[in-house]
Design a protein around this nucleic acid. Structure first.
Lengths: 202, 202
DNA sequence: GTCTATAGGGTGATAGAC
DNA sequence: GTCTATCACCCTATAGAC
């Protein structure tokens, strides 16, 4: 409770940067120590092992990635407005942490049990399920064109998230620089909502 | 020219499996040797170093991922039919190699120069650029609703590729098993084309 | 061409002085 | 709490016998 939690936070910040950048297998404890400007032994003093440290960073990343989404679908809004809000929220959020999705997805693929058990034991994203039902009701009422709600949901996530995951590849293919890419993602909010809502017109 | 190229091919096949599964940093030469059922020293005898071996596997993966796409956009077809053909081709192709996109995207993010120079020195996907212009022409003529062709292109790629990249995450969130996922991807072909073409109606 | 043995350098983790 | 020194192991790569 004196000044020590500063060091702990410095370590976490450094670990976050290195792990997200290089992944669990590619990261070195020395890299993290250098980034934090401290000694390698301190990492073990505070966090015992590389795996323990990684787990903290990873869990935090998953939370950050899902944070807010559930809240949006919980609100009392028409389905169309939830779509607009979700796209706005997601792209804004990802523009601030563009490397998170690839990090999380890669580490899950390396160790699927890690997340599967984390999700299967929880009341998982119930609001998202509710949202799928709201879509189904609108389609039944004829206020929205009938499509598979699950496929629609996956498409929304895909259109928002993939450009960040595939960013280096997209920039290479279309020869877009960093500045243009960032601007394009801002424009993309309007594109996605218009594109999707137009397709869903009854 | 006797029976030796068999060993080389065995090595490549093993390296492909291990590298795609674990990535460059996570893969061990011993893993590859075990997978190929040969000795670790043989890997160096045939391919000098881990990096050389990796580069072969990686280049092959990039080619496989882009193969066919250019051809489709080259054909003499209306833009709408090219969209249908591209979605059909991409999802079929990815269903056969579902882990390729994540592998390639992750390794590019670890070493962006690797692919950037590969692309910048080539006449790159000129047919895709041509396709963007075809879309622009149709929109100008009023036979297609006006949207940003680049954003449309990125959306098509996103909707096709992302489900494979985010597969473990999607399955965890929506609690879908492997069998259901595979079927869903087949259904997705029709969903995407209908969804996109509906949105593009003038 | 294929194997065993080993060099040479890194890596996570700990011991122990301060 | 923080550092230096070091252990024990792992990994790539090569040397050398067959």
């Amino acid at each position: 409770m004196q000044t020590n939690n500063t060091t702990e936070q410095q370590i976490i910040a450094a670990a976050r940067k290195i792990f997200v950048q290089k992944g669990l297998a590619g990261a070195r404890m020395q890299d993290i120590a250098d980034e934090a400007g401290i000694n390698k032994a301190m990492l073990h003093y505070y966090y015992r092992s590389k795996d323990k440290l990684f787990e903290i960073v990873f869990d935090e990343a998953v939370s950050q990635l899902l944070a807010g989404v559930n809240d949006i679908f919980e609100k009392d809004m028409p389905a169309r407005e939830k779509i607009v809000a979700a796209v706005e929220h997601y792209i804004t959020s990802l523009n601030k942490a563009p490397y998170l999705p690839l990090f999380v997805v890669h580490e899950i693929s390396q160790n699927p049990e890690r997340i599967l058990q984390k999700f299967s034991n929880t009341a998982l994203l119930p609001n998202m399920r509710m949202f799928l039902k709201e879509l189904a009701v609108e389609m039944e009422n004829g206020t929205m064109r009938k499509v598979d709600p699950w496929q629609l949901m996956v498409s929304l996530i895909s259109m928002c998230v993939f450009p960040f995951v595939g960013r280096p590849l997209l920039q290479a293919i279309f020869q877009v620089n960093d500045k243009a890419f960032a601007k394009t993602m801002e424009d993309r909010k309007k594109f996605i909502t218009d594109f999707v809502l137009t397709s869903l017109k009854p």
